[in-house]
Amino acid sequence: MLGTTAVTAAISLSMWGLLAQTNGLNGAARATARLDAIKTALTVGAGIGGAVALLLTLRRQWLSEHEQIHREEVDASTEHDATERRITELYTAAASQLGGDTAPGRLAGLYALERLAQDHTAHRQTIVNVICAYLRMPFEPEPPSADMAAWSEERVVRLTAQQILTDHLIVSAEEADEWLSDSPSADPKFWPGIELNLAGATLLHFEFAMRRAELVNFHGTRFVGYTNSSHAELAGHAYFHRARFEGGAGNFRGAWFGLRVVFSGADFGEHRAAFDGATFAGMVFLKDATFGSGVSLDDARALADFNTNWGSERQWPPGWRERPITENEPMPRPRLGRWTRAAQPTPGDETWTVLVRDEPGQAPEPGQ
């Protein structure tokens, strides 16, 4: 309708203007001029009609494309909502199984949660939190005098929960040379950026070697049996205050500690605590820990110019201190360390300090 009106108006105005120019002519000249004026007006109308038709076609195309985009957005939103509802249903079912009365049901719930976390990265941390919460539930590691079967089954469930958490934090041996970088692991099984809250949990033979986590909270955790955290990469804060290592050594050889590591009030029991070749890149609180058979920091090193936004305090165990690297002294490269040649500090590098034992008769430095 709008196009027809525009064409009619264009023809009328053109014809009126052109015919007005023939008023001074007479006879055959006037007839010929008036005929040409009519032809010209019709041509103008045809041109405008074509332009209007093109505009209408473009408008219909624009509307069609935007309707298609809208339909795709609606379909995507509907699909997303359906996926989220499905995830919620699976999560609820798995969590219900984890809280069930039978060990096979709890195991099924754990594996269902693991599969959800593997397939849906946005829900990983939530699922990790659920598994950590399960491990924080009370558990007595010593076999009871009665109901041995139920205790044995629960022990299997808890070991499985531990393994699910730690299996997805492994830094592969092929990536060991990249451990000082922020590059993500190429292993699709690896879950980056995970935070573990296992405060107050009872962990059995906890295997955390070669694992990488963003933050770990082991405040008051009981580590029962041999605990292996050698070459672990703890990028952020690592809380071990009041943790107890029972029946096995606390092995942190070659580990990397990031912003802050706290062992205040930790009890390493009767075994020697090993931090040989470890790297400390932030605040350190090791002074107030209990080392029943001593502590070893041979070939350990500390970042001198570290991030002090969280504080600058460092408390080393009695008998140990930091010492700057001397001018021609190479940084020790321990057999158990994971330093590449490219990452190895040069002699006299002021960026790093080494951990050494106090010399006999030497007074402790301030803060030691």
Rank of each mutant, 00 (worst) to 15 (best):
G27L: 09
N197G: 02
T290K: 15
D349H: 06
Q315A: 11
A302Y: 00
P332N: 08
Q362R: 11
G348M: 12
E153L: 02
M148D: 12
P318V: 10
F268P: 03
T57D: 12
P364T: 05
T92F: 03
F240G: 02
I325W: 10
A76V: 09
A304L: 08
A41M: 05
W179H: 12
L159V: 09
A343Q: 12
L19K: 15
G247R: 00
Q21H: 08
R253L: 07
E207T: 08
Q368S: 12
E207H: 12
H66G: 00
L169A: 07
A232I: 11
A209N: 13
H123S: 12
A9E: 08
D81L: 09
K287P: 02
E195F: 05
F190I: 04
A31P: 01
A146F: 06
I170D: 04
T78I: 01
R357F: 01
H168N: 05
D182P: 00
E327A: 14
V74Y: 02
P192W: 12
F223D: 01
A363Q: 14
L180F: 02
L303Y: 03
V295E: 02
D119Q: 15
G220P: 02
F285W: 11
G248S: 04
Q315H: 14
E233T: 06
D299I: 07
A28E: 15
N251I: 07
E233C: 03
Q118L: 04
R60F: 02
A6F: 08
E327T: 14
T121A: 14
T227W: 07
I48H: 00
M148F: 07
F291E: 09
H241I: 02
S77I: 02
G3K: 15
W151R: 00
S293L: 10
A6V: 14
A235Q: 10
W320P: 01
D101L: 01
I69P: 01
F252E: 05
L234Y: 06
F252V: 03
R244S: 10
A76D: 14
D147R: 06
T290N: 13
T290A: 11
E153M: 03
V284A: 14
A103E: 05
A363N: 10
W256V: 01
M331V: 10
G27W: 12
A304V: 15
M210I: 01
A94G: 02
D177T: 07
A94S: 12
R335V: 05
T126C: 04
L35W: 13
L336I: 14
L116Q: 13
D36Y: 10
D182K: 12
T5C: 08
P332D: 09
T126Q: 14
E270T: 14
L355G: 06
I87M: 05
Q21F: 09
V284N: 11
T22G: 09
F240K: 03
V52L: 07
S183A: 13
A133D: 15
R71T: 10
A103R: 08
V156R: 15
A342T: 06
G47Y: 07
D267G: 00
G200N: 06
L19A: 11
P144M: 01
A37L: 08
L303F: 03
H168K: 09
V128K: 03
Q97N: 11
R222E: 09
Y226E: 03
L234A: 07
G105P: 03
A232F: 07
H271Q: 14
A117L: 07
S145D: 15
N251A: 06
H237C: 04
L107G: 01
P345M: 02
I69R: 15
W316Q: 10
D267M: 00
S77L: 09
L58G: 08
A37Y: 13
T40Q: 13
